Computed example of a mutant assay.
Amino acid sequence: MSPISKQESGRAAEALARSHLERNGLRLLAQNWLCRGGELDLVMLDGDTVAFIEVRYRKHAAWGGALESIDARKRQRLVHAAQLFLQQESRWARHACRFDVIALSPGASPASPELNWIKNAFEA
Rank of each mutant, 00 (worst) to 15 (best):
P106K: 08
E22W: 07
L45Y: 08
H95N: 14
A82V: 04
R77K: 15
L40A: 03
V43I: 12
A124H: 14
P106H: 01
E14L: 02
G25Q: 05
G38D: 05
G37D: 12
I102W: 03
R73Y: 04
L45R: 04
E89K: 14
A13I: 14
F85M: 03
R18H: 10
L86Q: 12
R56Q: 09
D46S: 14
E123Y: 10
A121V: 11
A12H: 10
A108L: 15
A61K: 15
S5Y: 11
N24Y: 02
S109G: 14
H60K: 13
K6A: 14
Q76A: 12
H95Y: 12
L34N: 11
K6N: 12
G64W: 07
L40K: 04
F52I: 01
A13L: 14
V55Y: 01
L29D: 05
F85C: 05
Y57T: 04
V79Y: 03
S2Q: 09
A96N: 13
A96R: 15
R77E: 07
E123H: 12
L40M: 00
S112W: 08
A66G: 09
A93G: 06
G37Y: 13
E68M: 08
A66C: 12
R27C: 00
A30P: 08
L45V: 06
G37Q: 12
R94C: 07
V101R: 04
A62K: 11
L42F: 02
R27D: 05
S19Q: 15
E39K: 11
N32F: 02
G65S: 10
K59L: 05
I102K: 00
E89D: 10
N24H: 08
F122G: 06
Y57S: 01
Q87F: 13
A30N: 06
A103L: 04
S19V: 08
A66Q: 06
G64C: 13
R11G: 06
